[in-house]
Design a protein around this nucleic acid. Structure first.
Lengths: 222, 222
DNA sequence: CAATTAATCAATCGTATGATTAAATAAATC
DNA sequence: GATTTATTTAATCATACGATTGATTAATTG
């Protein structure tokens, strides 16, 4: 899904004549991907029309078919371009953070920093994974159920065995609480900032992370 | 928006002849409202077509115009019917729970029980309030910014003054953490149950509430 | 029964959508 | 310049949407 492919012609291994593929610019492709990331995250898949995508990318609507077959193809290409590497990195965090002195704090911090650095991610996860009928739920679960979710629960179980996690807590629920506190503030921020009268300052992310670590670590410590 | 109103005819105060309004059955109206609550919560406003609503209610599509003017009218009537009273009750909880022996625990418990008893609510809030472009965000914020949000922050501030809340915590962030832990498990449950391999048993709600109280109260206590 | 109004239905309107096509243009090779 | 291929465009397709219309059926009153 990554190469600009002519409809139903084959690329001979050695092209002899004719205009070669651009290979250098691919400006149209990139503009479409950028528009897709921005619009899909903001409005959701269904609410974004192909015409709106084309206009945002300053491109003819037919270019979607040309480069990505159809709207779904553009969506998946956009995910492969930006979402998947990031999800993979988040998955690795769970493993790597387990090594530090305070694995829970290490994971929590890395997780929230990643979310904060990629503000398009939380709303996209919200729409396409958490919301019922989200198109990424299956893929997300497959990625994380095999990799991350279990690891996080294992981490909690290990902490409990080491006596650093309250014995009366269910490790699974503890993992859920951690994710709740780490994720929800990002997705709910636009609402929370108005309901709670927050002023989101320069150092808001730092303060939020520090606060979350304080509350969660004390909350689950033995 | 509540009376079945003929298109552009007036209801004379005293009707003299002709078929009177049913006043008894209103089965069509009720079926449409029930279908609306179910479908809008499950799939979101845009994804539900008027034809799907009519079919679910076993009713002719024109009945939507007849009883509610249009799709938006049906949506708002559905909200007025079920959502608003519940939201109002949630808002009152914030005030009433403040009186008990442990106001924070009281509010947390009442809040989560209400959410658990109305499982259609979290996904609807997710779609229509939290998600960007949600149609209820303005209304929700107006309801809660004036009533609840401030009260919860005040509650935290009072707890801090009484020495029951850690002095190094921002009361606003503490309120946000509480809402995070109380709400997120409900909206994320379908995903979490698969990612974390949870089995949602009979007493899951009780265990979740007990767990949340344990972690949060210990996490914020001085 | 005749008049009047409430309620329902089949049919259809205009619009927006995702997608595709045939033609036009651009760039490279011979 | 002729040819071949890559890219782009305007025009258009079939479908689904929200909404409305005019006709039809039903119930009640005089």
């Amino acid at each position: 899904m990554n190469t600009p492919k002519p409809k139903s012609s084959r690329h001979p291994a050695v092209s002899k004549a004719g205009r070669p593929p651009a290979e250098r610019d691919l400006a149209v492709r990139q503009q479409l991907l950028a528009a897709a990331r921005s619009l899909f995250a903001k409005h959701g898949y269904d609410a974004v029309s192909t015409r709106a995508l084309a206009e945002a990318a300053q491109v003819n609507p037919a270019m979607i078919s040309y480069y990505f077959d159809n709207k779904q193809g553009l969506y998946e290409a956009m995910l492969a371009d930006t979402f998947q590497p990031l999800m993979q990195r988040l998955g690795e965090l769970m493993g790597s953070a387990a090594g530090g002195a305070n694995p829970v704090r290490g994971f929590l911090e890395a997780y929230m920093r990643t979310l904060g650095a990629n503000p398009w991610m939380p709303p996209l996860i919200l729409r396409e994974v958490v919301a019922e009928g989200g198109r990424l739920r299956g893929w997300f679960i497959q990625q994380f159920a095999s990799k991350g979710g279990g690891l996080l629960t294992q981490l909690m179980t290990r902490e409990q065995a080491a006596g650093r996690l309250r014995a009366d807590l269910d490790p699974t629920l503890a993992a859920l609480s951690l994710v709740s506190m780490a994720v929800f503030p990002f997705v709910a921020m636009p609402v929370a900032s108005e309901v709670f009268g927050m002023r989101v300052k320069q150092d808001y992310l730092d303060r939020l992370i520090a606060h979350t670590e304080r509350v969660f670590l004390q909350g689950v410590s033995a």
